[in-house]
């Protein structure tokens, strides 16, 4: 909002200098942040993400019990003051396990998307900037990846690699690259023919310089948006893999694995399924809301 308390005298002498200084001195990212802050849903998503990260980091301090500790006497209890979310069949505190489970989800989300992003950026840049043969090879390869349903591909890879956290990173990370590559290629293609790229070429700038200094910074914004949304997808895939027993192995607490174990007791002890499921929904929602807000913030014309 514009300062209403500004002195009227200052307004009178509005030279072009002054009229111009009313724009905050900012880059695209600051502008985007300013718009983002006004978007309530996006800020809700942002709050969820921050909260989740804090929970993951400080899990041992927040959780009242040890996640693998079995209290035989307390097995299969409903929610109570002693066990906020109840306990599972082995007598483990579900509240504690949900809290520790966030660590796996966050790690998978960030690392796997990081891997996809890195591979995708590299090949997307090659394909988009050089075109022709590199473009054809890379994009046909990407088509092969698109042909697989995401989850089926992940199952296939996990079956080959065997279960485990590192393998989940690899499986989800490798599967996601094609989406990033295609997106990055697209935004490079649209930027490649802009006049400022031509201006740089006219000055004799090298390909490396043009890609890193001119194209990357301008093509990166959509990648951030897509990356954020993709964290949610990665978390769901991880949960699915763990649910199927292909992911994180018990007794390590993971939301998908907790869902899988609680399936048998869905009628007798619904809380066992409700709380990890709720955690997944909230987390994914957080990333999607934030990603959505980011997209609007980077591109105000969308509204």
């Amino acid at each position: 909002m514009y300062p209403e308390n500004r002195e009227p005298e200052a307004k009178e002498e509005a030279t072009p200098e002054l009229a111009e200084s009313k724009y905050s001195r900012s880059s695209l990212y600051k502008d985007a942040w300013r718009r983002l802050r006004k978007n309530k849903l996006a800020m809700l998503g942002f709050a969820i993400i921050i909260l989740l990260i804090l929970i993951a980091i400080f899990a041992p301090l927040i959780a009242p019990y040890n996640p693998t500790e079995r209290i035989k006497a307390d097995s299969s209890l409903g929610p109570s003051a002693k066990h906020l979310f109840g306990t599972d069949i082995l007598g483990r505190d579900i509240f504690t396990r949900v809290i520790f489970g966030s660590r796996i989800s966050i790690q998978v989300g960030i690392v796997a998307v990081g891997i996809s992003l890195t591979i995708g950026l590299f090949f997307g840049a090659l394909a988009g900037y050089f075109g022709n043969i590199p473009d054809t090879i890379i994009m046909r390869l990407a088509d092969i990846f698109f042909a697989f349903p995401y989850i089926l591909g992940a199952i296939a890879i996990m079956t080959i690699l065997g279960p485990g956290l590192i393998n989940i990173f690899i499986a989800i990370g490798i599967l996601g690259w094609a989406y990033f590559a295609r997106l990055f290629r697209g935004s490079i293609l649209s930027i490649k023919n802009k006049e400022y790229i031509e201006a740089a070429r006219a000055l004799g700038a090298s390909n490396f310089r043009i890609i890193t200094k001119h194209i990357f910074p301008n093509a990166f914004a959509p990648m951030i948006v897509y990356g954020t949304m993709n964290v949610g997808t990665a978390i769901i895939v991880e949960a699915a893999l763990s649910f199927l027993g292909l992911g994180v192995q018990p007794p390590t607490p993971a939301w998908g694995e907790m869902l899988s174990e609680s399936l048998k007791y869905i009628n007798t002890a619904p809380w066992m399924m409700f709380f990890p499921g709720f955690a997944i929904v909230i987390t994914v929602l957080g990333f999607v809301l934030f990603g959505d807000g980011l997209r609007d913030a980077f591109d105000p014309r969308m509204k």
Partner: peptide
């Protein structure tokens, strides 16, 4: 040297 038509497209927005 060259000067372009579009003063919006000829300057990189992130620099």
């Amino acid at each position: 040297q060259i000067i372009f038509q579009d003063p919006y497209a000829s300057l990189s927005p992130r620099m």
